[in-house]
Design a protein around this nucleic acid. Structure first.
Lengths: 339, 339
DNA sequence: GTTAGCACTCAACTCTTTCGAGTGCTAATA
DNA sequence: TATTAGCACTCGAAAGAGTTGAGTGCTAAC
């Protein structure tokens, strides 16, 4: 177990390193006024902390730098929750007090605000479809052989797909079909749409004219297309501001991972409820192993809707970031609740 | 005027520099087999070309590097149009042969393909609204006080806006209103919508019940909201691959310009029809003055619809890039023509 | 248990040297 | 007269040597 003195020293080192990104020496620590003992004592403690794996040296006569184990310990045991500054508080409230009704707007705003406040990269996974239900299907003809299918969900989200139609299908059949589908599918959770469509197909084949079934087959393709990945990213270029990413090659590999939205979406999707922190090697994606990822989920009736995340250097301002994410995810949960 | 020998030397230097990004010396030029004269002769010619402002030295005993005037001359007089390689040809055709009906898909694909083929950053300005017309307006209630307005254009583009409604308005009034609007506005170019809405408002106030007018006032806000900027960007991270952008600060300032979509959109919007090249200082935006921007427009019935652009170092592969843009803009023009 | 003292380490910086790819100029050549 | 060989010169880049200073670990004294 760590002594109180060791805890204090570890905390001072990590706090300081988060600010400066420079190795911390014994003399610098001894100057802190919470610290009453001499540099020599601190050096002894630091050597012990290093033996235990909480600290590292960049070279044999350098100051100490936190190891990943050190960050992990810091996050698990030393972190004091801090209250948000008034500015942070107001900025976040601002997002929710503009009377916006579309969740895209709210999320887009949140992403921007988060990355501005923190100087890290913020990533939000939009509400998963399984919590939203179908409000209405519309089909609008563009020409004889093309049409747009529009799905509206109860959250005000609009999805649309264009598709081609064979000439044999007349618009009356199509209209009939849309009416049938609306009758039967409104209120169905989006996630269940594919199965429900299968069921309806059989039923329609049994009860209605063949032409409608044909139209249905065409429409189905448009409706079943996989969902777009629903991922919002802000402040990617903030990474360039961090001294640990002055290496162009490093940044490039990180960017190419973020660009592949499916990868990020999967990571965020698989997060457990609440706030979760992955530090360095704890991240599965190699390119992210110089980073920390902090995620928070937002929910509707206890069910997980989506995820808010911040990606930054391991040397993150953990406590502030946690407060920010906590606050934002709660506000987001509230907003969806009041829908 | 430049002698043939000077033209040849200038061309060799620029071609070579585009490949290597290294200053070119007289000996290297003399080794090219189109070149029959000695390094000493070449040095004399290079000194003259430098006096005329087409070449520069990075330091007093270095090889030569093209100046911006040099690139401009190269682009205006030395560029030989080259045929696209089979691979380029096929990749571009691929975008248009997938039977996609939504222009968003086509443009998104084009942006990706362009940046992959060139390793530069590609930017496309989507079809301007003035060439598209309204196909249909739909209003869908989400709750008592919220609704989504959906606009569909003849190109299959779907715009939607959520808005809040006061309780006094019943859905019957709203439906009436939508019918009136559809009757009067279908076929109207999107760009004229704002004015036309004003006209209709007066007319509605004169002829219809007051409640409809109130509903209209609410809806108007949603419909008149400024258009989203319609800009598609691909391969931003490609800039990191160019040796001239190994400086993180430079990249960061360039990125922050690209991030401000309105700036880029305005640049692309103001381009003249056809292919246009801005080299270095010719760009108005300071942050882009280390870059070249090549733009090509696509049209519908002679009217400019949008712009395709590539942003890269001044040392661009001009001839290949021009062929690519030329081909893509033609294919895009054709696609919109066949709509 | 704590700390002063001291020898030691190493990155970062500066200064110097060396190397070589390049130049410009002059004088010889075709 | 236009071209070229030859040569002295320039300067960046790389490699090596010396200096500095912030840091360490260890020992012995308090």
């Amino acid at each position: 177990m760590l002594s109180n003195r060791q805890l204090l020293i570890l905390q001072v080192i990590i706090d300081e390193f988060i600010q400066t990104a420079q190795p911390i020496g014994s003399r610098a620590i001894s100057k802190k006024n919470q610290v009453t003992f001499s540099p020599a004592t601190i050096r002894n403690e630091m050597a012990d902390l290093e033996d235990m794996g909480f600290l590292e040296k960049t070279h044999s006569s350098s100051g100490r730098v936190p190891s990943e184990k050190g960050y992990r310990f810091y996050v698990d045991h030393l972190l004091m929750p801090i209250d948000l500054s008034q500015r942070d508080e107001e900025t976040i409230s601002g997002v929710f007090n503009q009377g916006m009704v579309e969740f895209e707007q709210i999320i887009q705003n949140s992403v921007n605000v988060l990355s501005e406040l923190t100087n890290y990269t913020s990533i939000i996974l939009g509400p998963e479809v399984y919590a939203t239900t179908l409000k209405q299907i519309q089909i609008i003809h563009l020409s004889k052989t093309t049409a747009v299918a529009i799905l509206v969900t109860n959250t005000g989200h609009v999805e649309h797909r264009s598709f081609t139609l064979p000439k044999e299908i007349n618009s009356l059949d199509l209209e009939k079909l849309v009416n049938i589908l609306n009758d039967r599918l409104v209120g169905v959770p989006i996630i269940q749409l594919p199965q429900r469509l299968q069921v309806e197909l059989t039923s329609i084949l049994d009860h209605y004219i063949k032409d409608v079934a044909t139209a249905f087959n065409y429409l189905k393709g448009a409706l079943l297309d996989q969902q777009p990945s629903n991922l919002y990213v802000g402040g990617i270029t903030n990474m360039l501001l961090q001294p640990e990413f002055s290496d162009v090659a490093k940044i490039h590999s990180l960017y190419s991972v973020i660009e592949q939205e499916e990868i990020m979406a999967n990571i965020l999707r698989s997060q457990n409820q609440g706030i979760h922190i992955s530090i360095g090697q704890e991240n599965k994606i190699t390119e992210m192993q110089d980073c920390s990822l902090i995620t928070a989920t937002y929910t509707l009736k206890g069910q997980q809707l989506g995820t808010i995340a911040l990606l930054g250097p391991k040397r993150m301002e953990y406590s502030r970031v946690i407060s920010l994410l906590d606050r934002l995810s709660k506000d987001m949960t509230d907003t969806f609740h009041n829908w």
